[in-house]
């Protein structure tokens, strides 16, 4: 009994409720006439689509920089990567790889600047990150208009300049990973390539967190004074975590785009950090601790809920409440995490 109680306090009521809610959705889906096969396909696709952006948050949480509301910076690097690769005329798998290769240096650059900035504003990271992300998205909105993109698929039809609001990846690398080695079982399709890529990224972070740097990073988040006394440069570790997070955010949006089929520019990345943050928190992470397990469970629960709610609830209530549920659950989760006392209280 006590162990159950301890588990519940540790895991947190909100997560249990969400898990039970999702379970309920899956159970009731066949009853209300929603096919499970396509639903599961959807859940897996959306899991893979979002998992890397959730994963991108982990290094910064572990390094004590809090929830990375500045994720849009990484996303912008990814947008530069995909649009430039398209502009240069790469298609298919090479196109996707070139997009990643372009994304990485931009991610490094943005992450470095962003990390340096966050080091100057310790204590207010999250608010500032949010606004820095917002401003960067708006600055890039101007750039999308003025940068000399020329490819007809990319630019706005009538003016011939400025990117379209959403650019189709149909002729480039749409569903590239999703369809790679995809396994079809009845009406359920398992996106093998997508899962492999996500697995690769998770493995990368898993290994990274076990290197000397990764270990130092965790210690900085756990107790910066201890880390400093052990000869670790706290500022440097925080910057490293920010860079890794930003680069991974860029790769994350590339994976998102290929699954979604479109590149969305202008103010689309504005609020993209929030669903990622809530997914991580739903997975059991706190503002100061996050693990791969949190990423996987959280993304699955959150995306599962987002996929299942509209189909199930709509067929029951004949009204689409999923948006409202999404807003309340995701932001409620963030508030819960922000107001929860962290484990170590000095």
């Amino acid at each position: 009994m006590n162990r159950i109680k301890a588990f519940i306090t540790d895991f947190g009521w909100p997560r249990i409720i969400i898990a039970l809610f999702l379970l309920g959705l899956f159970i009731s889906a066949p009853i209300v006439g929603v096919k499970l096969g396509p639903s599961f396909t959807d859940v897996f696709n959306r899991f893979g689509q979002n998992a890397i952006m959730v994963l991108a948050l982990v290094p910064m949480v572990q390094a004590g920089c809090g929830l990375n509301f500045g994720l849009p910076l990484g996303i912008l690097a990814g947008l530069l990567g995909s649009t430039l690769a398209m502009q240069l005329g790469f298609v298919g798998a090479p196109g996707f790889i070139v997009a990643i290769l372009i994304t990485i240096p931009f991610g490094l650059l943005f992450g470095l600047g962003y990390g340096k900035l966050l080091n100057k504003v310790k204590g207010e990271e999250m608010t500032i990150a949010m606004y820095v992300g917002f401003s960067a998205v708006m600055l890039f909105s101007i750039l999308w208009l003025v940068l000399p993109y020329t490819k007809a698929d990319l630019v706005m039809g009538y003016a011939g300049e400025g990117l379209r609001r959403s650019i189709s990846l149909e002729k480039y690398w749409a569903k590239l990973l999703n369809d790679f080695l995809a396994v079809r079982i009845g009406d359920f399709v398992f996106p093998t390539g997508l899962m492999l890529f996500v697995g690769l990224c998770v493995l990368f972070i898993f290994v990274f967190m076990r290197t000397r740097t990764g270990t130092a990073l965790t210690a900085v988040g756990s107790n910066p004074d201890y880390a400093r006394a052990s000869g670790v440069s706290v500022e440097r570790m925080r910057t490293v975590s920010t860079v890794v997070s930003t680069v991974l955010g860029g790769v994350g949006i590339l994976v998102y785009q290929q699954s979604f089929g479109f590149v969305q520019v202008y103010d689309a990345p504005l609020y993209m950090a929030f669903p990622a943050v809530s997914a991580l928190l739903i997975g059991g992470a706190s503002v100061t601790k996050a693990s791969m397990v949190n990423v996987v469970i959280g993304t699955f629960l959150f995306q599962g809920m987002l996929t299942m709610t509209p189909s199930v609830i709509n067929s029951v209530l004949k009204t689409d409440m999923s948006e409202v549920i999404r807003i309340i659950v995701s932001n409620g989760m963030i508030i819960y995490a922000l107001t929860r006392k962290t484990k170590v209280t000095k």
């Binding site: 210690a219 756990s222 107790n223 004074d225 006394a229 000095k346």
Partner: peptide, 12 residues
């Protein structure tokens, strides 16, 4: 001297 503050990673 500050065991819990500087000396240890309490969560590890």
């Amino acid at each position: 001297e500050d065991r819990r503050g500087v000396g240890l990673l309490l969560d590890e």
